[in-house]
Design a protein around this nucleic acid. Structure first.
Lengths: 244, 244
DNA sequence: CAGTGGTCTAGACCACATC
DNA sequence: ATGTGGTCTAGACCACTGG
């Protein structure tokens, strides 16, 4: 007799995978670094190389590690996105030019989580949060206004100056400075009319239809650690999604 | 010396996979049916069971087949989506109720491909197309207006009556009646203002911001076979996307 | 029970990167 | 030359489904 819904059987490679996730979460292997080789891990866990490989393959499918033939297996990181497109950014130029957008921070302030955000972040309403406002610019043109809400407890010491001193993507900043790794996100998209302030920032008329993207980002164990709302002009840009 | 960009080495399991894709495309195994067992395929291709399994796993990753332990491996189909959510539909109710929407066909007409659609569908401008207009309704409430453009050459004999006689999803209809299998899609999302006609259908004021979803759907070999533009109210619904 | 997919092993060999 | 990940094999055994 087994509990309904609970798998009564867990294959070895998934058990190994779970152990490795713990090592990643605990920081035994750090972002950007190489983890031990297949053979080392096989002997460490006393399983065959094939079984360890399946575990690592599963981690790679989850984007937790990256395999590089001949070099090793590396812990995935957001700090190497400075050149390429940030992994979670789906806004693209209509003309197809693949360009890394610039980020300009408008504001950092402390506040209390409103009810809906608190629910999304698994906080109690009124718990302290940080709210960052920033603009994404493609080729110098403002396209997205992001309002980013973070649980203050996880991001102690985050200031405007500290962010501006950092070179790289925002998730790279979170990862290196606060040890918070953004792993998955769930986005809800709607179309709304631009309010006056956003319209001014984006250089469009108030009332212009904007794409609203609400994102909840999670770390290990699907714990939510970021709530974000982005408003984009879609006059010369769009949100790209591939369905498989 | 090898051609740059062309892999100089193709592993066996990918060669096997390519052969199996041909069998699928040729219709040797039909949607919904079981393909031969791992062991049969291993002997047919004269490789080990492990190698055939890797090939099938790759096909399953691409959603071309579905594995069912104890039963067999089955060719993926859109005709079993009548109960669950259609695979390519990302619009959801805000309240979280997971409900299969109803589809109401407004119009079927013949026409010539305008330049932009022709480009998306790899047709010559002016080639004959079919244009279907339909409404998706969640709980009886109209939410999406879809305009669906198909190359007429691939969908000979498609009429309003024929579609209405079919029970099931639109992609199930295409698959069973015309042998056209929708495998992948690429969507571009924008926010636009509702025109008068769409506003009337959706029961919103003209000028209301709508979510515009442009989709190019492809079949084997990434050949485009459908161009579609959907306009959605996002008052009580949203477009859901998971980022991994 | 037989047949299917799923797991695991041990070992050989290949491709790639680096020194 | 060495170490890494990637492929392939042969065979054993496990879990699930259905007659």
């Amino acid at each position: 007799m087994s509990t309904p819904g609970t798998p009564s059987f867990q294959p070895l490679y998934l058990q190994i995978k779970a152990l490795m996730v713990k090592s990643l979460e605990a920081g035994e292997w750090r972002p950007g670094e190489a983890i031990p080789s297949d053979l080392e891990l096989a002997s460490r866990f006393s399983v065959s190389q094939g079984t360890v490989r399946r575990a690592i393959d599963a981690l790679a499918d989850d984007n937790l590690v990256v395999r590089r033939q001949g070099k090793g297996t590396f812990v995935a990181t957001h700090t190497e996105e400075t050149v390429s497109m940030p992994r979670f950014l789906r806004i693209r130029r209509d003309d197809g030019v693949d360009e890394h957008p610039g980020s300009r921070l408008l504001d950092v302030r402390r506040g209390k989580a409103p009810a809906d955000v608190a629910r999304a972040l698994d906080l109690k309403p009124g718990e302290p949060v940080l709210v960052l406002t920033r603009v994404l610019e493609f080729g110098g043109v403002p396209v997205v206004v992001d309002e980013i809400t973070l649980p203050a407890a996880l991001f102690r010491g985050l200031t405007r100056a500290k962010y501006e001193a950092y070179q790289g993507s925002m998730y790279g900043f979170f990862e290196t400075q606060f040890g918070v790794r953004m792993l998955k996100a769930r986005e809800r998209l709607k179309a709304i009319a631009a309010d006056a302030r956003t319209a001014a920032i984006l250089g469009v008329a108030p009332g212009t239809p904007l794409l609203a993207v609400e994102r909840v980002t999670t770390t290990y164990g699907d714990r939510p650690v970021e709530w974000r709302r982005g408003l984009s002009t879609t006059l010369h840009h769009h949100y790209l999604n591939e369905l498989g």
